[in-house]
C-alpha cells in the first residue's frame, strides 16, 4: 500500500519535473497570433473590412471579434490562408468581399488636379506626392490600390487603373485538365 502510494507520488513528481523543465527549455517564442494574421493580410490598409487598417483587423480576428472573410483585396486565397492559420473552417467571402476586383493603382489626371492635398492626407501608405497648390502624383510602385483617396478628391480626378500583366509578371496558366475530364462536359 505504502509502496504503491510512494511509487505513484514519485512518478508524479518526476513527470512534473520533466514537464516543468521542458516548459522552460522548449518554450516557443512564437509570434503573437495577431502578427501572424497581419502577415497574411495584403496590407492595402483600405479599411474595407470595417476596421481602420490591416493591423486593427488582424487584432480583431485574433481576439475573435471579426470573421476571416472580410478582406476584399485579399480575396479567397487570403481567407483560406487565415482559415489554415487559425484552424477554422473556410467560409464564404462577405458579399462585398466576394466581388474580387482586378488589382489596380490610382492615377491622378494632371489636368484636373487642383492641388488640394486631400488625397495625400487620405493615403495610408504615403504613395501620393505633392504639396498645396501643386500637381499631385501617385507613386505607382507604392500604391496598394485601396481607393481611400477617391472619396476625398473634390474634383474626382483620381482614377483606378488596373495593373497590366507584362511578360515580367505573367504567370503560366494552370494546365488544362486531362481530356477525359473534359469529355463529360
Amino acid at each position: 500500500m505504502i509502496t504503491a502510494i510512494l511509487t505513484i507520488a514519485g512518478l508524479a513528481t518526476l513527470f512534473g519535473l520533466v514537464l516543468g523543465y521542458s516548459a522552460i527549455r522548449f518554450r516557443v517564442e512564437g509570434d503573437p497570433i495577431a502578427d501572424q494574421i497581419d502577415a497574411i493580410l495584403p496590407q492595402t490598409q483600405c479599411g474595407q473590412c470595417g476596421f481602420g487598417g490591416c493591423r486593427p483587423y488582424a487584432e480583431a480576428i485574433a481576439s475573435g471579434e471579426a470573421e476571416i472573410n472580410r478582406c476584399p483585396p485579399g480575396g479567397e486565397s487570403t481567407m483560406i490562408a487565415l482559415a489554415e492559420l487559425l484552424g477554422r473552417d473556410p467560409i464564404a467571402l462577405d458579399d462585398e468581399a466576394a466581388a474580387e476586383k482586378p488589382k489596380s493603382v490610382a492615377y491622378i489626371v494632371d489636368a484636373e488636379c487642383i492641388g488640394c492635398t486631400l488625397c495625400i492626407q487620405a493615403c495610408p501608405v504615403d504613395a501620393i506626392m505633392g504639396a498645396a497648390k501643386q500637381l499631385h502624383a501617385v507613386i505607382a510602385s507604392e500604391c496598394t490600390g485601396c481607393e481611400l483617396c477617391l472619396p476625398p478628391c473634390p474634383v474626382e480626378c483620381i482614377h483606378m487603373h488596373p495593373i497590366e500583366t507584362t511578360p515580367q509578371t505573367w504567370r503560366w496558366p494552370y494546365p488544362a485538365p486531362p481530356a477525359r475530364e473534359v469529355a463529360n462536359g
Binding site: D38, P42, Q45, V125, D126, T144, R171, W172, P173
Partner: peptide, 27 residues
C-alpha cells in the same frame, strides 16, 4: 512552370504588402 510563376507572383505580392506595411507603419 505554373507553380514557379505562381510562387514568384506570391513573392512579389508579399514584398509589396511588406512594403505597404512598412510605409503604413512609418506613416
Amino acid at each position: 512552370r505554373f507553380a514557379k510563376t505562381e510562387i514568384w507572383a506570391q513573392e512579389r505580392e508579399r514584398d509589396k504588402s511588406d512594403l505597404a506595411r512598412r510605409r503604413h507603419e512609418a506613416r
